[in-house]
Computed example of a mutant assay.
Amino acid sequence: MSKMTILGVREDRDKIIDALMRLGAVEIDRSGIKDDRSPQVAANADNFETRARLVRTIEGLQKRFLSARQLSVKKLSVTEEEFSFTEREEAELRDLVSHYETLIAQEESILHQVTLLEQQIAQLLPWSGITLDLTEQTSFRTSVIFGTFMDATSLDSFQTDLLRDFPLAAVHLLEETGVFPAKTAIISLNEQLPRVRARLASCAFHEIPKLPFTGTAEVTINSLRDRIEKLETEYKEPENCLE
């Protein structure tokens, strides 16, 4: 959910709020703002917001449950008296909608976390055959940069510059020589690291992503998959509540 601030003329505020509420695309957050609207205007805006939330809730339930979708096919005729709510019923309705929105937010948060973890796994898969411990990338004097040179020209050019400008640095190929993209480990003194990185930035070089490594790439992938399984278990809780 995105947040935005709308600036405008004060006398147009109520019209803008009413228009936004009718669209059902936003939820107004008035926390910390003194409400100087007339009671009638405030009540109307509140009703529009409630209606928009109800519409989103009904549409969400219809998409999730076929039985709920079938209920909307035949519209029942009701009188104004039958349609009216008591204050208690309205409060219960608001609580139910708030509970639904909380559960949906939990689901979306879990799905977002799962997506990020799956992306991290996809980034690590090309490194799954490398048996080096990726958690050990720095020491008191040196740092290791793991990454991939996309072509021989970039690798040869970088190695030439390295020998000339950084004789104490080294490039180690982690796979068969002559195969590209080539996975490499570049070892540099810490004081030279910024300059080495600057030189790498001009090459066709992709550094391995900064991830929460727990060992080798394969071990880290398994750890990420375990986290996904736990999140999928957590996902069932709001899902079961919605059912």
Rank of each mutant, 00 (worst) to 15 (best):
R30Y: 09
T5F: 05
D165W: 07
V55Y: 06
V9C: 02
R94A: 06
R195V: 04
V179G: 01
I186D: 01
W127V: 00
F213D: 02
G129Y: 05
V196M: 05
T184Y: 04
Q106N: 14
L125H: 07
L23Y: 07
V196R: 00
D95M: 10
F158C: 02
T86Y: 11
G8A: 11
F205Y: 11
Q106K: 03
S98D: 15
L132Y: 08
I121T: 04
T220Y: 01
R197A: 01
E89A: 15
K63P: 00
Q70C: 05
Q62E: 14
L20D: 02
S188C: 14
H206L: 07
A198R: 06
K230F: 07
V219M: 03
M4A: 10
R164L: 09
F158I: 04
S143K: 10
L174C: 02
A122R: 13
S67E: 11
F85C: 11
A170M: 04
F213V: 03
A68K: 12
P212E: 10
V55G: 03
E82S: 15
F85Q: 14
A204M: 02
L61S: 00
F213M: 15
F140N: 09
T184C: 15
I130D: 09
H112F: 15
F48N: 11
V196K: 00
Y100A: 01
T153A: 11
P167G: 05
D133R: 03
I110G: 00
S154K: 03
E118Y: 06
D14P: 01
I33A: 03
P126T: 02
L71G: 09
L111W: 10
H172N: 11
H99A: 13
R197Q: 12
D133C: 08
P181W: 03
Q120F: 13
L174Q: 02
D18H: 11
R64L: 14
A105F: 07
